[in-house]
């Protein structure tokens, strides 16, 4: 799992390369916690290179979204592949989180 964070107009764009599952979820959670601890609560998860996400990953996204909101920020996600989109649809996360087709749209929203 490769996690790259870049800043774009005050939004922290976190890009993932790999999968978010039981084994990588703690790593992902730590990356978000580090940003939130540093006062960065405007977050965008870019899933362009994410192969799949399991419920362990969904839990991390949920926890992160809640914390970001408490810090007056939020968690957006973009660039979901078909499998990840399906998981978001099935789990209802597509309505809990703000989902965008491209990073561009997410940043401008």
């Amino acid at each position: 799992m490769e996690i790259t964070t870049t800043e774009n107009n005050g939004i922290q764009v976190v890009a993932f390369n790999g999968k978010i599952d039981t084994n990588t979820a703690p790593e992902v959670e730590q990356a978000f916690v580090n940003l939130l601890d540093a006062g960065q609560a405007h977050l965008l998860a870019n899933f362009e290179n994410l192969s799949f996400i399991s419920s362990a990953g969904l839990r991390v996204l949920l926890a992160t979204a809640k914390k970001a909101k408490l810090q007056s920020g939020g968690l957006k996600v973009c660039c979901l592949n078909e499998t990840v989109q399906e998981v978001f649809d099935i789990s209802g996360f597509a309505t809990i989180l703000q989902v965008f087709a491209t990073q561009e749209e997410a940043l401008n929203a």
Binding site: D21, F52, S54, A56, T83
Partner: peptide, 13 residues
Amino acid sequence: SLKINMVFDELLN
């Protein structure tokens, strides 16, 4: 296969 990857992660975990 990506779905199966997720399924394995859920069930084996």
